[in-house]
Computed example of a mutant assay.
Amino acid sequence: MKVCSYKGLSVVIMLRDEHCPPHAHVDAGAWSARFKFSFWHNGVELWDVVPLSHRPPVALLEGLRQSLRETDHLRRARWIWWTRLRTACLDNQWWDGQSNQVAVLREVASTSFRIGSAYYEPEENKTLLALVGAREGVEIEL
């Protein structure tokens, strides 16, 4: 499903055989790119471009990334991913309550809890985390 366009290129969420992490695709014919997004922060990053031999200019890739990062576009990408795939791709990762971010496994601290489940509320644009062993969950307003 189409999320947005930039300079005639469509940024889309594929719905067949899709996998974590959440990401969007751009297919330009000679090359394709994927951009990762998240249900716990508003950043977007370039994941990969194939083939490398036909990689487009950095400015075009950055423009695509910034377009997907726009509030309405990112919210639409999350909505498509969640409503079709029913995952925020956060289950069984670790949440660090001190830094308020997903922890890298080697950085898990005493303030970290395993994410038992994550639920995205599209209408409110927020993610709810149920943390294993914690007294309360986490509500992330995006």
Rank of each mutant, 00 (worst) to 15 (best):
M1E: 08
M1V: 05
K2C: 14
K2F: 08
K2W: 08
V3R: 01
C4K: 04
C4S: 12
K7M: 14
G8R: 01
L9M: 03
V11W: 00
V11L: 09
V11H: 01
M14N: 02
R16N: 12
E18W: 05
H19A: 13
C20K: 01
P21L: 06
P21D: 05
P22V: 05
D27H: 10
D27R: 09
A30Q: 07
A30S: 10
W31H: 12
S32V: 04
S32C: 09
A33D: 10
A33N: 04
F35W: 15
F35C: 10
S38L: 13
N42C: 14
G43E: 09
G43R: 02
V44N: 00
V44D: 03
L46S: 11
L46R: 05
W47E: 10
D48C: 09
V49N: 15
V49E: 15
V50G: 08
P51K: 01
L52G: 15
S53L: 11
P56D: 07
V58N: 03
L60D: 15
L60A: 07
L61M: 07
L61I: 01
E62M: 13
E62L: 08
G63P: 12
G63I: 06
R65L: 13
R65H: 03
Q66S: 07
Q66R: 12
S67C: 07
E70W: 14
D72Y: 02
D72Q: 13
L74M: 08
L74I: 04
R75T: 07
R75Q: 13
R75I: 05
R76W: 02
R78P: 04
W79A: 07
I80Q: 05
I80T: 02
W81G: 01
W81H: 09
T83F: 02
R84A: 13
R84M: 07
R84P: 00
L85E: 15
R86D: 10
T87C: 07
T87Y: 10
C89L: 02
L90C: 12
D91V: 04
N92M: 13
Q93G: 04
W94A: 10
W95N: 00
D96I: 03
D96R: 14
Q98F: 11
Q98I: 04
S99I: 14
N100I: 02
A103P: 03
A103H: 00
A103I: 08
V104A: 14
V104F: 11
L105A: 06
L105S: 03
L105D: 12
R106K: 14
S110F: 15
S110Y: 15
S110A: 15
S110M: 14
F113Q: 06
R114H: 03
G116D: 06
Y119M: 09
Y119K: 08
E121P: 01
P122H: 02
P122S: 09
E123A: 04
E124V: 01
N125I: 10
T127Q: 09
L128H: 09
L129E: 08
L129G: 05
A130D: 15
A130P: 03
A130I: 06
L131T: 04
G133C: 12
R135D: 11
R135F: 14
G137M: 03
E139D: 10
I140N: 00
I140D: 02
E141W: 14
E141T: 01
E141R: 02
E141H: 14
L142S: 00
L142T: 09
L142W: 05
